[in-house]
């Protein structure tokens, strides 16, 4: 048995890769799938904080790759969903601690353990860690902000996904690419201050799989160590739920692209 490998990547840092990885993995687990989410950012571990399991990290991904711990020892079981596991990045090793063979072995073993999905949270940049995170992927979620440097970098990443991955090298079918637009601010788009969904789609020549509105709930969720998809009341959480459903093949219309209508009190008092 093999697991479907999904890489969450972007090129540029700070666009929402880890937030997306956490919510995507959680959403897949909510749909009943057995999911492992792996932090590939060796030296700058953060997924554990976003998932809220930072105090329970004993062994990490690098330990498993080097045979210092078994996969079972290193997988951290989520407190909320029992089919969801986190594999943390090493905080002390350097980024050369991962090897292609080692990563391949871990991904294969996860398949043998009955995992349906492995979500690979890529580090920023296009160096070794990012390369390894994407190399074995079947799907890629490219996270992009409606901002020039992020859009340009994501085009670069789309190019790498099409050439520098195992699927590309073997010629066994392209990676399925999903563009996820995050930090979207409909009010600023409406007045022409921010690139629109359509603009980004046109520039990159690929349709979005989801649009996550800029939301204060994302910071609140990371403060609390709860993936924002679990915040049903937030637009961001709902937009992530829609995105996961689409990745699983469901058809759902995009939401939260318009400026929210203000109520009477908001109009009078602002906010």
């Amino acid at each position: 048995m093999t697991a479907e490998i999904i890489v969450v990547t972007s090129g540029k840092g700070g666009v929402g890769k880890t937030t997306t990885s956490a919510s995507l993995a959680t959403g897949l687990a909510m749909a009943g799938k057995k999911v492992a989410v792996i932090d590939f950012d060796v030296g700058l571990r953060n997924l554990d904080l976003i998932m809220g399991c930072e105090r329970r990290v004993v062994y990490d991904f690098v330990n498993v790759v080097h045979g210092e711990a078994t996969l079972k020892q290193a997988l951290i079981k989520d407190k909320r969903y029992e089919t969801l596991y986190v594999l943390a990045a090493s905080q002390t090793r350097d980024k050369d601690a991962l090897t292609q063979e080692g990563v391949e072995k871990v991904l294969e073993d996860l398949g043998k353990e009955g995992f349906d999905y492995v979500v690979c949270d890529s580090p920023a940049g296009i160096e070794k860690g990012a390369h390894l995170a994407m190399y074995f992927a079947d799907h890629a979620v490219v996270v992009v902000n409606p901002e020039v440097s992020s859009v340009r970098d994501s085009d670069r990443i789309l190019g790498l996904l099409a050439s520098k991955t195992r699927r590309a090298e073997r010629g066994d079918g392209a990676i399925k690419q999903h563009l996820l637009l995050t930090r979207y601010n409909p009010a600023r788009v409406a007045v022409g201050e921010m690139l629109s969904v359509k603009d980004v789609e046109e520039i990159l020549g690929i349709n979005v799989v989801g649009v996550i509105p800029e939301s204060e709930n994302v910071l609140a969720a990371s403060n609390a160590g709860v993936p924002v998809i679990l915040d049903d009341n937030s637009f961001a959480g709902q937009a992530y739920s829609d995105t996961v459903a689409r990745i699983l093949g469901e058809e759902r219309a995009l939401r939260f692209l318009e400026v929210p209508k203000k109520g009477f009190f908001q109009r009078v008092f602002g906010g």
Binding site: V148, V151, R152, V191, G192, E193, L195, S196, E202, L204
Partner: peptide
């Protein structure tokens, strides 16, 4: 004073640089 509507400019610049880099 509000920021100028600059999204169009961003789009145009990106269109050119992305095409060139591709």
């Amino acid at each position: 004073r509000k920021p100028e509507p600059t999204a169009g400019l961003a789009k145009e610049r990106l269109r050119i640089i992305v095409a060139q880099e591709r």
